[in-house]
Amino acid sequence: MKPMQNKIDTIKNTFIADLVAAATLEALEAIRIKYLGKSKGETTLLLKELQSLSLDDKKHYGPLLNQLKHYQESELENKYKILNSEIKNETDLTIPGTPRPVGHLHPTSVVIREMNEFFRYHGFSIGEGPEIENADYNFRRLNLPEGHPATDLQDTLFIKEPDILLRTHTSSVETRILSAYHDKLPLRVVVPGKCYRNETGNATNNSFFYQYQGFVVDKGITIQHLKDVLTKFHQFLFGKDVVLRFRYKYYPEVSPGMGVDMQCQFCKGVGCGVCKYRGYIEVLGSGMIHYNTLLACGIDPDIYTGFAWGMGLDRLVMSKFGITDIRKLYSGDIVYL
């Protein structure tokens, strides 16, 4: 590199370092003299040196040196303004700022994301399906023949009786996905989604609500895997100390069925108003996917086994966000703070 270019670069670098270090107007003036002083300023001297260069070099370095000079002048000017105003009007950083407006996600979206994160980590996909369903996917493939007493467990909202309805659970998405992927197994899927029941709304029940469904189908899946997934999931949601109770419970779409309860966190299992004096709170229904369900979805149940669970999301969302009335959650009556 040519000596002149070297000098320009060195001056640039030392100038920036000096400028950053300058904390007073006096120091700033010293820098001005150091670089742009009329007789001995470093940049001034370089400009003088220009006279002795060849014509070619003059053409090349002339504009560069002028640029440097202007640059230093404007930087000094800027710094002068800053230092001057700081002296005149010192910024009081002890005054608290005003928060900028930010948008918020709905509590249910927040909880769904939290859960999705857990299950994505464990190799699950997120599945979706229609809310307007037919009786085949919502009931029949779930081992619920017409007129079965267990249809009483869900009061259906019909669009056209008896076939077109609003899905009563996210299990309908399970039968849709199992049927569509019957020849592309294995599967690990979770389904967050809206469901509907023909109920008059009150503080704890709404005709529209959210469920979180999950299922796994593969070779060699046992009820022990189900227990493990649900245990880890609840530890993720409620902490390592969570106490779960596993018990037999009937659901038409699974056999063996399994109910899962969590020890009441208020009374630690003694029994109180929150847990209706049971000591435990029901959290979800689950089980091994019914032989007839797998069969109805085109899967050989002697080769493939699987488990499924379904849980209401709203009560969980309400407890995490301190909301006491489910209707508030979905009627636009919540305001974010």
Partner: peptide, 20 residues
């Protein structure tokens, strides 16, 4: 008694992701 059923982690390979 379901309490006596052990819990065992899933050990099979992670299936293909079908998230849309």
């Amino acid at each position: 008694d379901y309490t006596n059923i052990p819990a065992t982690p899933l050990a099979s390979p992670v299936p293909v992701d079908i998230t849309s």
